[in-house]
Design a protein around this nucleic acid. Structure first.
Lengths: 122, 122
DNA sequence: CTCGGCGTTCAACATATGTTGAAGTCAAGC
DNA sequence: GCTTGACTTCAACATATGTTGAACGCCGAG
């Protein structure tokens, strides 16, 4: 049977911030919006698992192609607990597909414009 | 010699809004940020040329791939007065290149992640 | 067990991208 | 030349994406 790889929530907000290259305020922002998840210590401090910094780095790159934090969180939400490589593969495909669809829409619009022989009513 | 095709500023803000599918407030916003340009009547009303609605439609699609209004205005600023088809062609290429570079960055990041065999520290 | 470095929340500020409403002005058709 | 619908500006509001600072709490090393 498959071995369990339970997520262990050990990283502080500062550690995740350092590992992902954003401010601690941004890490808290991403958690509030569901890009990363955390447990709390008995003293109410956040503890993140090892995927947090990676998720944030992916989110930053995805934001550059026009995805909102909400959209990125929704895509990450498709991940099961203890995601396997193929789960991340699906997320990666979804992100790329979104980016390519938007680029294709831009290209289609610009192509239509050019072939219209009335480029921006020149 | 080449025939002049002087831009004629005749369209009101409402006409541009209707033609581009955005609110008049958005048309004014885009003008303030240099996406479109207008002259003023003696009574201080805006008059846009025929390219305004097209520029705004292009801007909306470009925003979807992560370009800011500022970046879009900067790209449009490369257009000469009375732009020719090849001028719009260069703008189109610049927009597409930006979108593709960002998508490539996303893909590269995700590929690096997958090949790292430590996908988001799974 | 204490202390200093992190952590917490919350409110305010900041920038980008707009919308809405008030108060007043313009211009086009009758 | 009047009227009225569309225009003007400006301030306030709204959402997304954060940052900063104050006031206070937690926790691990000594």
């Amino acid at each position: 049977m498959t071995v369990e790889a339970p997520a262990t929530y050990t990283l502080t907000v500062g550690e995740v911030a350092a590992a992902s290259g954003v401010a601690t305020s941004a890490v808290r922002f991403y958690e509030r919006h569901g890009v990363v998840h955390a447990e709390r210590t008995s003293g109410d401090q956040r503890r993140f698992d090892d995927s947090a910094a990676c998720r944030i780095r992916v989110a930053k790159v995805a934001q550059r192609v026009g995805l909102t934090v909400r959209e990125i969180a929704d895509i990450f939400d498709e991940l099961p607990r203890d995601p396997q490589p193929q789960d991340w593969g699906r997320v990666a495909e979804t992100l790329i597909r979104e980016a390519e669809e938007r680029t294709a829409a831009l290209r289609a619009h610009l192509d239509a414009m050019r072939s219209g022989s009335r480029l921006c009513e020149l």
